[in-house]
Design a protein around this nucleic acid. Structure first.
Length: 830
RNA sequence: GGGCGAGUGGUGGAAUGGCAGACACGUGGGACUUAAAAUCCCAUGGAUGAAUAAUCCGUGUGGGUUCGACUCCCACCUCGCCCACCA
C-alpha cells in the first residue's frame, strides 16, 4: 500500500474494472429481491456541472448501497434526446441536431464515468433513435384508438422566438420558458391528449403515493385544481339563448347582480351583432387585445369591463341583470362566463364599485350583522342566508346543496365539478421530435399510420429555418403518402410530438431496450415496476411526473401494464447554488467538475457533494470546502496505512477496545438508519468522520501505551482491521474508488460491492459506561458516568448519592424525579 | 391572495420533546521544517471573570403546553419556492 493516497492510482483503475466486470448490470436470473433505482434521464446538453452531479452521485450511492444490502439492482440510464435546444443550435451553427446530440451524449457519458457513477449501460436508450420513437408513436396510436388523442383548433401559446407552440406549462410569466420571448396567442389546429379524462384518477391516486414528498403531491393536486359547485343557466333577456356559468358558491345565487363573459367568449360575436352598445364593446375588445397575456394575468392590471347592452335573467328570482364583458374572466376555466356576486366576492365587489353596479347582501354574518350598502369589502365567509326566498335562515354551507338540488329539480342548473387541468397539447411545429403518426386523406380524413408501418422516420436532410411551420413541410418525400385505408393520395402530418411524450414512458423501455416487437414486455415491467426509487429535480414536480402518471394509467386501462402508478418512491434533490444563484452559463457561475476531479479525484468531489447539506435542500457550493473532503479521505488512507503496514495491529487495552468497538457499532447503526430513512448522506459522512477520529485516537493511545512499560494486556486483544473494514464498507457507496482500493489492501480478492453491508451488534453497544446528564429543574447541573444497562431506580439512587448533586439540592425538597433511560435525570425541587 | 418550505456561531450545517452548535469550513495560536507545503496538537457562540473556576444569556419575535421546547401548539415578522383575476 502506498504511503500517500493518490486518486490517480485508484480512479481509472477501478472505473475500468467495474465497467468490465459489469458491476451494476441487473441479473435477470437472480432470485434476490428487485430494486429499480432510476434517475430522471437528462437532456444531452453541452457539459455537466457539479449541480447536475449531485443527482447522479446520490443515485449512484443509493444503487451501490442497495446492491450491498443484497438486492438485484436495476440502475439504467438514457437520454431525453429530442428537443428544441439541439434544433436551435442547428439553425444557428448549421450542425445537424443528431450530430450535436450524440456528441453531447459522448461528453456526458465520459463525465459520468469520471464521477465513478455506474449504470447498466447495456440498457441505454435515446429517445431520438428510431427504435425508441417508433414506440413513442405506437403510444400515440394507442391513445388515438382510445379516443384520448384528438385534434382541434385552439388558441395556443405561440412563441415568436422559437417559432413554435408552447404548452401552458412552458409559459412562465407570459414568456417562453426557453427564450423568454413574450408569448402570443394564435389559433392553430393541434393534437391534444385528453388528460382531463384522467383528472379525477390522477387526483385520487395521489393517496397511493406514500413515498412521495408531500410538497410534490400538493403541487400536483393544486395543478389538477378540482373545485365543486354548480353550473347555472341564465337566459338572455328577450332571446332564445342561454348562458351557463360555473360557480363554487351556489349559495350566493340570489345575490348575483350582473353576469360577465370573457372577451374571447364565443358569444361575444353574437353580442356584437345585436348590441346597442356595439361601439363601446368594440373599443373595449380592441383595448384588451393590446394587452399581452402576461399583462392580463398580472395583478397590477385593473379589472376592466364594458356593458354588453344585453341583460340576462337570474333563474332563481327572475331578476333582470346586466351582462358585462370583462378582462378578469378567464376563457379557459369553467364556462368562460361567470355570475357576479359583489357582496360575497372581492373581485366582483371591486368591479361593482368601479362601475356602480348593485351590491346585494345574501349571506349575513351571524356574529356581526352586515349592511349591504355600507360594506367596505366583500363578505366571503360562511353565514346565514338572507334575501334568498325560501332559503332564508339556513346556513350557507347547507344552502350549497339545498339550492343546487332545488335548481336541478327546476332545470335551472346542476351540480358540477371543474378542474384547472387542461388537455395536454402535444403538437410541435418542429423537426427534432417524434413525428406524429397520422395521415390525412382527402377521402377518409384523419387516418392513423398502421402499427406495422412504424416508425415514421424523420428525414435526415432538411432545411432548418424558423418559418413557423415544421421544417418537414418542405420535405416532399416525407409529406407524400398513401392512405392506409383506401390507398389513395394523402399527406402526412408534419408536426412532431412534445418531448414530454418521449419521457412519459421511458422507464418501461429499460426492461427490454432492444426488443423490436413491443414497446415493453408486460411480464417484465409488471415484475420490475413501480420504480422503487425515482430521483430527480423538483422542477419536474408537475409536468413530467403528471404526464408519466397519466400515461401509466392509460396503459393500465388498456391492460398493457398491471400497475396504476409508475413511481413508488420519489426523491427530489435540492439545487446547488453558487454565489446565491442557480448555476447557469449566462450567469457565469458554473462550477465544472473536471478540474476538481483532476486535482482531488472523483471520491473527494463525491464526498463533498454529499457532505454539503441534506440532499433534498438547496445548498451553496464552496470550492474551498472541497479541501475538507480531500483531507478526510487522506486521513482514512493514512490510518489504513499506519495500521496495516507491519502485520496486524491489535488494541490491547480493555478501555480502548470498548471505546472503539462501541463507536464502530454505533456508527454502523446510525449510518444504516440515515441512508434507509432519509438519504441524509451529510450525517452519514459526519458519523464516519467521527468513527475515523475515534479510531485514530485509539490507535495513537495504543502506540503510546506500547512504549510504556507495565501496560495491562487484554485477554482478548482487538484487531483494528475489523473497524477498518467497517469504515471501508460504510464509506464505499460514497467514495467507491478509494474504498475498493483499501478493501483490496485489506486482503480481499473480490469487489467490496459484492460484500454484504455490515450489521451492528446490540450487545457491543451495551458495554462500558454512559454519561448521565443531571438536571435540576430542567437546567444542566452535573454529569455522572454510570455503567450501561442499570435500571432507572439504580440511576436515581446513584445520582442522589452523588456528593455534588447532594450539595446542589441541599436546601430544597425534592418534588419529583424524572429519569430518561440512558440519557438524563431531572430532579424537580422547590 | 393561496399553498409549501425555511429562519441555529464568521460559514455549511447537527440535534426520535432530554447536554444546543456534532461533523466540517474558516480564523487564531503552537509543534515539525533552513523555509514553505503537507501533517499533527490546542483554542474558537456571547457576556461577567485573572481564571483551566463559577454564573448568566443564547436557536427570527411574542405567547402557550411540559419536569424539560431548536423541536409541539397559537399569533406575528422575514426570506425562498410553487401557484395565482380559477368564479
Amino acid at each position: 500500500m502506498q504511503e500517500k493516497y493518490s486518486h490517480k492510482l485508484t480512479d481509472k483503475k477501478w472505473q475500468e474494472y467495474w465497467r468490465d466486470a459489469k458491476l451494476m448490470s441487473m441479473d435477470e436470473t437472480s432470485q434476490k429481491p428487485k430494486y429499480y433505482c432510476l434517475m430522471m434521464f437528462p437532456y444531452p446538453s453541452a457539459a455537466l456541472h457539479v449541480g447536475h452531479g449531485r443527482n447522479y452521485i446520490i443515485g449512484d450511492a443509493v444503487a451501490r448501497y442497495m446492491k450491498m444490502k443484497g438486492y438485484n439492482v436495476l440502475t439504467p440510464m438514457g437520454w431525453d434526446a429530442f428537443g428544441l435546444p439541439a434544433e436551435n443550435a442547428a439553425i444557428k451553427n448549421g450542425v445537424h441536431p443528431k450530430e450535436l446530440t450524440f456528441n453531447n451524449i459522448t461528453t456526458m457519458k465520459s463525465q459520468l464515468e469520471e464521477w465513478g457513477v455506474l449504470y447498466d449501460w447495456d440498457r441505454e436508450v435515446a429517445s431520438c433513435n428510431p427504435d425508441y420513437y417508433k414506440w413513442t408513436q405506437w403510444l400515440f396510436l394507442k391513445l388515438y384508438e382510445k379516443g384520448l388523442a384528438y385534434k382541434k383548433e385552439a388558441a395556443v401559446n405561440w412563441c415568436p422566438g422559437c417559432q413554435t407552440v408552447l404548452a401552458n406549462e412552458q409559459v412562465v410569466n407570459g414568456a417562453c420558458e426557453r427564450c423568454s420571448s413574450e408569448v402570443q396567442q394564435k389559433k392553430l389546429k393541434q393534437w391534444f391528449f385528453k388528460i382531463t379524462d384522467y383528472a379525477q384518477k390522477l387526483l385520487d391516486d395521489i393517496q397511493l403515493l406514500d413515498g412521495w414528498p408531500q410538497r410534490v403531491k400538493t403541487m400536483q393536486a393544486n395543478w389538477i385544481g378540482r373545485s365543486e359547485g354548480a353550473y347555472i343557466d341564465f337566459k338572455v333577456n328577450g332571446l332564445d339563448k342561454t348562458l351557463t356559468c360555473f360557480t363554487t358558491r351556489p349559495d350566493t345565487i340570489f345575490g348575483a347582480t350582473y353576469m360577465v363573459v370573457a372577451p374571447e367568449h364565443h358569444y361575444v360575436e353574437e353580442i356584437l351583432k345585436i348590441s346597442e352598445n356595439k361601439d363601446k364593446v368594440l373599443k373595449f375588445l380592441e383595448k384588451i387585445k393590446g394587452q399581452s397575456s402576461f399583462q392580463r394575468q398580472s395583478e397590477q392590471v385593473e379589472k376592466e369591463g364594458v356593458f354588453s347592452g344585453l341583460y340576462v335573467i337570474n333563474p332563481v328570482n327572475k331578476d333582470k341583470i346586466p351582462l358585462w364583458i370583462a378582462n378578469y374572466v378567464i376563457y379557459g376555466y369553467g364556462t368562460g362566463s361567470m355570475m357576479a356576486v359583489p357582496a360575497h366576492d372581492q373581485r366582483d365587489f371591486d368591479f361593482a364599485k368601479k362601475y356602480n353596479l348593485d351590491i346585494k347582501l345574501v349571506i349575513d354574518n351571524p356574529k356581526d350583522t352586515l349592511n349591504g350598502p355600507s360594506m367596505k369589502e366583500a363578505y366571503e365567509d360562511i353565514g346565514v342566508l338572507v334575501n334568498s326566498g325560501k332559503f332564508d335562515g339556513i346556513s350557507s354551507s347547507e344552502a350549497k346543496t339545498a339550492i343546487t338540488s332545488w335548481m336541478q329539480d327546476n332545470n335551472m342548473g346542476k351540480k358540477a365539478i371543474t378542474y384547472k387541468l387542461r388537455d395536454w397539447l402535444i403538437s410541435r411545429q418542429r423537426y427534432w421530435g417524434a413525428p406524429i403518426p397520422i395521415i390525412y386523406c382527402e377521402k377518409c380524413g384523419i387516418v392513423p399510420v398502421k402499427e406495422k408501418d412504424l416508425p415514421v422516420e424523420l428525414p435526415a436532410d432538411v432545411e432548418f429555418k424558423p418559418t413557423g411551420v415544421s421544417p418537414l413541410e418542405d420535405k416532399k418525400e416525407f409529406i407524400e403518402a398513401t392512405c392506409p385505408k383506401c390507398g389513395g393520395v394523402a399527406r402526412r402530418e408534419v408536426d412532431t410530438m412534445d418531448t414530454f411524450v418521449d419521457s412519459s414512458w421511458y422507464y418501461l423501455r429499460y426492461l427490454s431496450p432492444k426488443n423490436e416487437k413491443v414497446a415493453f414486455e408486460k411480464q417484465l415491467v409488471d415484475k420490475w415496476l413501480p420504480v422503487d426509487q425515482y430521483i430527480g429535480g423538483v422542477e419536474h414536480a408537475i409536468l413530467h411526473l403528471l404526464y408519466s402518471r397519466f400515461i401509466t394509467k392509460v396503459l393500465f386501462d388498456i391492460k398493457a401494464v398491471g400497475f396504476k402508478e409508475p413511481f413508488a418512491n420519489l426523491f427530489t434533490q435540492g439545487m446547488i447554488i453558487k454565489d446565491g444563484a442557480k448555476m447557469s452559463k449566462s450567469k457565469g457561475n458554473v462550477v465544472s467538475p473536471d478540474k476538481l476531479i483532476e486535482q482531488y479525484g472523483a471520491d473527494t468531489v463525491r464526498v463533498y457533494t454529499l457532505f454539503i447539506g441534506p440532499p433534498e435542500k438547496d445548498a451553496e457550493w464552496n470550492d474551498r470546502a472541497v479541501e475538507g473532503a480531500w483531507r478526510f479521505l487522506n486521513k482514512v488512507w493514512r490510518l489504513m496505512h499506519q495500521t496495516t503496514q507491519e502485520g496486524n495491529f491489535y488494541i490491547t487495552d480493555d478501555e480502548l477496545i470498548v471505546k472503539l468497538t462501541v463507536k464502530t457499532n454505533e456508527v454502523i447503526k446510525k449510518v444504516t438508519f440515515d441512508i434507509e430513512n432519509s438519504f441524509h448522506f451529510n450525517t452519514v459522512i459526519s458519523s464516519i468522520m467521527e468513527l475515523v477520529n475515534v479510531a485514530k485516537e485509539v490507535v495513537d493511545k495504543q502506540l503510546e501505551s506500547n512504549s510504556l512499560k507495565g501496560k495491562v494486556e487484554s485477554k482478548s486483544p482487538y484487531d483494528v482491521k475489523e473497524t477498518l473494514e467497517v469504515i471501508c464498507l460504510l464509506l464505499s457507496p460514497l467514495a467507491p474508488h478509494i474504498c475498493e482500493e483499501m478493501w483490496r489492501n485489506l486482503g480481499h480478492s473480490k469487489s467490496i460491492f459484492l460484500h454484504p453491508w455490515p450489521k451492528h451488534n446490540e450487545k457491543v453497544l451495551s458495554q462500558g459506561q454512559m454519561e448521565i446528564i443531571v438536571q435540576i429543574n430542567g437546567k444542566l447541573r452535573s454529569r455522572i458516568n454510570l455503567d450501561k444497562g442499570i435500571s432507572e431506580e439504580q440511576i436515581k439512587a446513584a445520582v442522589l448519592e452523588d456528593e455534588k448533586v447532594k450539595n446542589l439540592i441541599a436546601n430544597a425538597t425534592i418534588k419529583k424525579v424524572i429519569v430518561v433511560a440512558g440519557k438524563l435525570i431531572n430532579i424537580v425541587v422547590n
